[in-house]
Amino acid sequence: MKLSLSRELSELQRIVEARRAYFAERGLPASLAYPVDLATEELFVNMIRHNTGTREPITLELNAVQDGVAVSLTDHDVEPFDPRLVAPVDSGAPLAQREAGGLGLHLVRSLVGAVHYEYRDRSSKLSFLARERARA
């Protein structure tokens, strides 16, 4: 499944609808829906907010693989930005030290494990594999 996304938060609804249709078509396990939705949202929103120098659409691809779903998001005509290099949030910090924001990539890693980053021909590509056994 391949989707071209405008750089708008309203696209999140279209992402979920397309994901639901793809999961139904391919008979993918419902247990993978939440991790795929969350990781896709967090990475998509990250691209919109950090790669502000382009108006190109973002390409989302979902591919059923033997033991899960491979997901990639590609942002075109952008400078390199690897979100994996952002300092991790301390999820054990007390309330007074917690701030809204910064949790996205932490949750992505918790739910789907490693995120891969590739920069080529002015395109940034983030990808992950959602699998049952990848979850904590």
Partner: peptide, 10 residues
């Protein structure tokens, strides 16, 4: 998602 958690935290 993290956006909703941010609203709860604030």
């Amino acid at each position: 998602s993290s956006a909703g958690l941010g609203v709860l935290l604030k």
